[in-house]
Amino acid sequence: MRFKTLQQLVDSCTQDGVTMGQLMLTEQAKETGISEEQTFQQMADYYSIMKEAVRRGIEEPVASRSGLTGGDAVRMQSYMKNHEPSSGKEASRALAYALSVSEVNATMGRIVATPTAGSCGIIPGVFVSSQERFHWDDDHLVMGLFSAGAIGYVIANNSFISGAEGGCQAEVGSAIGMAAGALTELRGGTPEQAIHAVGLALKNSLGLICDPVGGLVEIPCIVRNGFGAVTALAAADMALAGVRSVIPSDEVIGVMLEVGTAMPSKHRETAKGGLAQTPTGRRIMQDLYGPNGRGKKKGESPQT
C-alpha cells in the first residue's frame, strides 16, 4: 500500500485527484493482483450481507445465544414510529440499525466484521440509514466501504483493532472513526475533512475499556454500537462544517496505542473488570457458567 498514515492517505488522494475509496480500491487491486471489478464485487457482496443483517434484526426480535439480550432494535423501531425521538429520526434510525446488526451477531448470525464483530453494527447502521435518507445507489456505499477500509487499515497498523489488545476504544472507537471519515467523503467532503472526522471521533472514545459481561459480545457491546453510529454522524457533521481536529488524527491514533498499551489486562476483554465484575455482572456470569467457572456443556447448540 502507498500509505501508512492518514496524512499519507490524504496526500496520495490529492496527488492523484481521487477519493479515499478510489485510492483504496486501486491499491487493493495492485497489492493482490485481483482485478478492480472482482475486488469491487467482493465488497458489494459484503454490503449485501450488512443490509440483510440490518433487516433481520429490525423485522423481528432476535434473542442472543445466551438469552441476555435481543429485541432492542425492534423496540427502537416501534418507539420511532410512535414518538418524536429526542435525537431526531435520522440519528435514531442509524442507532436502531446498528443495534440490529449487533443483535444478529449475538445470535451467531451472519455479519461482516467492520473492523471486528464486536463493532459490526456501526458502519452498517450509518451506511444503510444514510442510503435511505440520501437515496444513494449501492455502488456509492460500496466505495464508502473502501474509504472506511483505508482508514481502518491505518488505525490497525499503527495501533490496534481488537479489544483484547487495546480495549473497546480499539474496536468500537475504530469503527466510529472509520464510519465518520467514510460518511464525510460520501457526503462530498474532501479527504482532508474526512480524516479530521476520524480524529474528532477517535478522541471521543479514547480510554474506553472492553468489559463485556460474561465475556460475551452483548453487554455493553450492543448499545455501544448504537451510540457509536450516532457519534459517527456527529463527527462527520462537525468535519463537514469545517471543525478540525487540532491534534492531527495520526497523533490521536498514537494516543490510542499509548492508552491501550497501558490498559490493565482486566479491562481488555477478559471479563475480569469493569461492568463484567459488578455484582450484577458477576451474578450473570455465574448463571451462565455455574459457580465453578465454566459449567456449560461443550457443544451445546445455541438457542436460535
Binding site: I111, C120, Y153
Partner: peptide, 17 residues
C-alpha cells in the same frame, strides 16, 4: 495487509477474535 482484513471477513458471530 489489505482492505479485506479490515472490512471482513463475512462471518458467523459473535466475535471476530
Amino acid at each position: 495487509k489489505d482492505v479485506f482484513s479490515i472490512i471482513g471477513p463475512s462471518m458467523i458471530g459473535p466475535s471476530s477474535s
